[in-house]
């Protein structure tokens, strides 16, 4: 069976779900940030696949925007994590519940 749009969409959905499960189950906030990157990567595959189906390169431009957003998200998220670590000496989200108490 030739590789078509469906294969790429299934791959992207699987990547997104892996990222989702990672965010939901892991308690180490570094790995939660990595799971968000996995989800963004799945979305990029969808953009590129539809771009090829329509023969229009606009999808590639959107993937570029996604790259920039992912970079900004990683930079800010990691800066916040470093700051939290300085204050609390942990990156485990289970122990960061000051607002809850």
């Amino acid at each position: 069976m030739a590789i078509g749009l469906t294969h790429y969409l299934i791959l992207a959905a699987a990547m997104f779900l892996v990222g989702m499960v990672g965010v939901a189950t892991r308690r180490n906030s570094l790995i939660m940030l990595m799971s968000i990157e996995i989800m963004l990567c799945g979305v990029n595959v969808v953009f590129a696949a539809y771009s090829r189906v329509h023969g229009d390169l606009s999808g590639h431009v959107f993937v570029l925007m996604n790259f920039a957003v992912a970079a900004a998200e990683a930079a800010i998220g990691l800066a916040i994590l470093v700051e939290i670590y300085r204050l609390r000496r942990t990156v485990n989200v289970d122990e960061l519940k000051t607002l809850m108490e």
Binding site: L64, M65, A68, V69, A71, A72, A75, I76, L78, A79, I80, V82, E83
Partner: peptide, 16 residues
């Protein structure tokens, strides 16, 4: 998007 990146750089610097 380049403004988004600039703001992210400034934000990361301010946080760090």
């Amino acid at each position: 998007i380049s403004i988004v990146l600039l703001v992210a750089i400034i934000g990361a610097l301010a946080l760090g």
